[in-house]
């Protein structure tokens, strides 16, 4: 009886400790996230002061309307899906340090599987924070070392021969992503792609505002996807 009471007391103490820890995690997470947000949004203005050219706010607003909306929706989805997986500490860190899908999420899941922690438990909260903090520090370290090693290569990177490579960095990205996204989804991609090709062929001037064409292209793809979804679930 005495032992049972002591166990209950221990569990209660642990639970109170964890609640206190979690509350402080939220306080620190909010403070640090706010500071980093201010730093990230403020940096372009600080750089603008140094370069003598402040950002063009009108162009920023137009750019946000064309491509920012998509990433806003994507961020909301990521927040809703990944926050419960990562817990408080892990999610604050993950949203600050980025590279979620390609690194932080698989890393945290791998860590959790390694020790067999269950989602939503205090153990998972600790494991996921340890995992994401470690992963972020490794990225910071690898990139810092890489950037240091890149310094002697600057004349090579800025040579005229390599300029076509850097001028086509966006095409290189979309080639890779096109294969990844179109593969297995051509029934959804074919119509928007054909429609957009015809649009760019008959109105060539539209190439200077490609980002705005994401809206009709994406809208059409969503419509087709919705019809397909409805048909399957009918």
């Amino acid at each position: 009886m005495k032992n049972a009471n002591m166990n209950d007391a221990n569990i209660k103490n642990e639970s109170t400790y964890f609640e206190r820890y979690n509350d402080m995690t939220h306080v620190l997470g909010r403070i640090f996230t706010t500071i980093v947000l201010v730093m990230l949004v403020g940096a372009p203005f600080l750089i603008g002061k140094i370069l003598g050219a402040m950002p063009d706010l009108k162009a920023t607003a137009k750019g946000f309307l064309s491509v920012g909306i998509i990433w806003t929706v994507s961020s909301i989805v990521e927040f809703l899906v990944y926050t419960p997986m990562l817990g408080a500490g892990g999610s604050y860190l993950a949203f600050i340090t980025g590279n979620l899908i390609n690194m932080k999420i698989p890393c945290a899941v791998n860590a959790r599987d390694t020790v067999g922690a269950k989602s939503g438990t205090p153990e998972n909260e600790i494991i996921s924070t340890l995992s994401i903090a470690t992963s972020s520090l490794v990225t910071v370290l690898v990139l810092a070392l890489g950037v240091l090693l890149l310094q002697p290569l600057q004349p090579v990177l800025q040579s005229q021969v390599l300029q076509p490579a850097f001028a086509n960095v966006v095409a290189a990205l979309f080639g890779a992503m096109a294969y990844k996204y179109f593969r297995g989804n051509m029934d959804i991609a074919a119509i928007p792609l054909t429609f957009l090709c015809l649009l760019f062929i008959f109105v060539p001037s539209l190439t200077s505002s490609t980002s705005f064409m994401i809206i009709p292209g994406g809208g059409l793809a969503i419509l087709i996807s919705w019809l397909k979804f409805k048909k399957r679930n009918a």
Binding site: M177, Y181, L196, M213, G218, A221
Partner: peptide, 10 residues
């Protein structure tokens, strides 16, 4: 689908 539209546009 939105990403398909985005990649398709470019």
């Amino acid at each position: 689908a939105m990403f398909i539209g985005l990649v398709g546009a470019y």
